[in-house]
């Protein structure tokens, strides 16, 4: 018993270090004063953070990525909530079949989704890039929404909803006054996960960005092709701060285990 615990705790500790150290290095190099990334750093400067905001691609990309992530998560919820309600409340023939359709996007590799959407929506239909990208990100978020909300809805006792009908509220009002408040944790969890998934996505975004549509992750990728300086470290730190902020929100309102 003892030796097993000791063995696993040594490995576990090393693994944790391996998980943190690379990110630590990124953080530290973002403050280095040399123009080429070096570790350990020689001097201290905040110039690279300043430089991040001098890059129109990064600033625009950040804005765009925020907008797309919020829209995609919201739309996925607006589509997903009614579907989950129907799937959990009504007797439907071939219910698992429908469930699988909704989880479908998780089955197809993201890069394939991106490619297929680009071919059909952008090239054949001539849909604006922004709309096509939004579609892609909604599809990406939908499985998360369906999975988390189904779990939340299953935990909710249908009798509570019926009790509201009995005291005189119609089904739509009941849905907003009784059902939604009781699954709001799942909704928040689904939103946060969807937001992060969309915000961080590269494989789908790759096909549907361009001079007119900058997204942050692909902008960083492009920047890395031509430059290798601590600006990337600095923008990485900013991304980590966003992740940390979302984790804090999740921890405060949900408990972190809701996110996994």
């Amino acid at each position: 018993m003892k030796s097993k615990i000791r063995f696993s705790s040594v490995i576990g500790f090393i693994v944790l270090l391996l998980l943190i150290l690379p990110l630590m290095i990124v953080i530290i190099t973002s403050f280095g004063s040399e123009t080429a990334i070096s570790f350990p750093i020689k001097g201290f400067t905040l110039n690279w953070y300043h430089n991040v905001f001098q890059q129109p691609d990064f600033v625009e990309g950040m804005k765009m990525s925020f907008i797309v992530a919020i829209l995609a998560a919201t739309i996925a919820l607006l589509i997903g909530i009614p579907a989950v309600y129907a799937l959990t409340h009504f007797q439907i023939h071939h219910k698992s079949w429908f469930q699988n359709i909704f989880l479908n996007p998780a089955l197809i590799p993201e890069i394939v989704i991106g490619f297929a959407l680009y071919q059909t929506l952008v090239i054949s239909f001539g849909l604006p890039l922004f709309l096509s990208l939004l579609v892609g990100h909604c599809l990406l978020c939908l499985p998360y929404v369906i999975r988390l909300l189904t779990a939340g809805m299953m935990d909710f006792d249908n009798r509570i909803e019926e009790a509201a009908w009995m005291v005189g509220y119609n089904k739509i009002v009941t849905f907003f006054k009784v059902v939604i408040p009781n699954i709001k944790q799942s909704i928040l969890a689904a939103f946060i996960l969807s937001f992060i998934t969309s915000f961080n996505n590269i494989p789908i975004t790759l096909f549907m960005n361009g001079p007119s549509l900058n997204m942050l992750p692909t902008s960083i990728l492009n920047y890395l092709e031509n430059n290798y300086d601590p600006t990337v470290s600095a923008v990485s730190v900013i991304l980590m701060l966003i992740t940390a902020a979302l984790m804090m929100i999740a921890e405060k309102y949900l408990g972190l285990n809701k996110l996994t």
Partner: peptide, 12 residues
């Protein structure tokens, strides 16, 4: 510590 990298951008 385990969750943070999952939620951090792959580029980073």
């Amino acid at each position: 510590i385990v969750l943070f990298p999952i939620l951090t951008n792959a580029v980073v």
